[in-house]
Amino acid sequence: MTTTEAGPDAAAAITQEPHGGRGTAWWGMVVLIMTEATIFASLLASYFFLQAAAKEWPLDGIEAPELSKISLMTLVLLGSSAPMFWAEHGIRKGQVWRLKAGLIMVILMGSSFFAFLSLYEYPELTFGMKDNAYASIFYMTTSLHGAHVVIGLLMLGVVLIKTFQGKFTAERHVTVEVVGLYWHFVDAVWIFVFSSLYLSAHLK
């Protein structure tokens, strides 16, 4: 290695134009999401581990969860990523109205999912979390996801307020992107939770 090796390109580096990478907040969120995804992966792995060790599944003659309504709500939750994308694209072009409208849509769809889960799905369940390991892991996984939905909704709410305060522009909207990313993650994780806890329980 020679002493001059890096001279030229280091100097070049300094004068180069920025080329639109992501900011630290975005990177931070991505890494956080990776670790959160691993939490869900560990829980789902635990679910299948317990299933593999069990003679019957679900345990103690509990019925596999009913599918029709939750499938519909799944569509609502996953669908909420669409207005989020639409809103993000809007603000990139400076269209604040799209951000407002999109966020309101997302929040409505997300809250109806959560309302369904907590007001309808949970009270309907015939088992409690102390009954057996199946019940425990079912409650643990769904409620952890529910908590993520709530946190996502709270963050979206803050973004909405800021939007109405006119804080976001075509150039300055990192928060929107970061919160949007989180919301997409909450949606994506549900696909895995749904397929494991609901769909796979019906496979024989």
Binding site: L50, M129, D131, M140
Partner: peptide
């Protein structure tokens, strides 16, 4: 670390809230 967190959270859930993750009698492991 997430695996540890899940491991200890399930442990504490068993201890504090009576779940059955690790209880053989309740189908846990």
């Amino acid at each position: 670390v997430p695996a540890l967190t899940v491991g200890t959270v399930l442990l504490e859930a068993d201890r504090l809230f009576g779940t059955q993750f690790y209880e053989v009698a309740g189908g846990g492991s």
